Amino acid sequence: MPVWRPLFLWPARVSADARAASFNTDGITWHSYAEGPDRAQVEGKPIYMLVRATWCPMCCAFRSVFFERRVEVLSQKLIFVLVDRDQESEISQAYAPDGDYVPRSMILSPEGVLQGALNSGRSDYRYFLPVENPGPLIDLLQRALEIRI
């Protein structure tokens, strides 16, 4: 049975730029999935991929961690990719080894291969990070940089 969501709480049309802006596009360069792996290969950087949905309250809460200065600094050493679970469902499902939940924070090789060992450490929802503080995201990004992918 579908979950009812009050439509009046969400704008009927939100541009891709407006959605991405909520994840700190002033301090972080976000890429689409189509361009992320190509750029990562050229620059020799791992990819941080965030799969999110516009209707997800946890995704909305997660936005604030991307304004943390340490996250901004680390973002310069990785390629950040933002995927909309609903608009890019094929990509979301391709990177859903333990479910198509959101938000999912994943580290990929420059070729776009999921690095399964770089996860939240949970036994379930391995790619879900706590959304209320930047510490777990910072830890994940630092581990991605320490391991030669």
Rank of each mutant, 00 (worst) to 15 (best):
A61L: 11
V71R: 02
E43C: 02
M58W: 15
V81K: 01
Y48F: 12
S75I: 09
P46D: 03
E68F: 08
A53N: 15
D84R: 10
C56Y: 14
E72V: 13
C59K: 09
F67P: 08
L78E: 03
L50I: 06
A40Q: 13
F66E: 00
C59Y: 06
D84G: 06
K77P: 01
S75K: 12
K77A: 09
Q76I: 04
S75Y: 07
V83S: 01
F62M: 03
F67M: 08
R63M: 03
R69E: 13
L50N: 09
P46G: 07
I79C: 00
R85A: 10
T54C: 06
K45W: 03
S64D: 12
E43K: 10
A53P: 11
C60V: 13
I47P: 05
V65H: 08
C59T: 13
A53L: 12
E68L: 01
R69Q: 15
Q87T: 11
R85E: 06
F66Q: 01
Q87D: 12
Q76H: 15
C56T: 14
R52E: 14
S75V: 10
R52L: 11
P57M: 06
Q76W: 07
L50Q: 03
G44L: 13
C60P: 00
L74H: 04
R85P: 04
Y48P: 02
L82G: 07
P46H: 04
R52C: 11
R85Q: 12
V73Y: 01
R70P: 09
F80G: 06
E72N: 07
I47R: 03
V81D: 00
V81C: 14
M58C: 12
Y48H: 08
R69L: 13
A61H: 11
C60K: 11
V71C: 02
R63E: 13
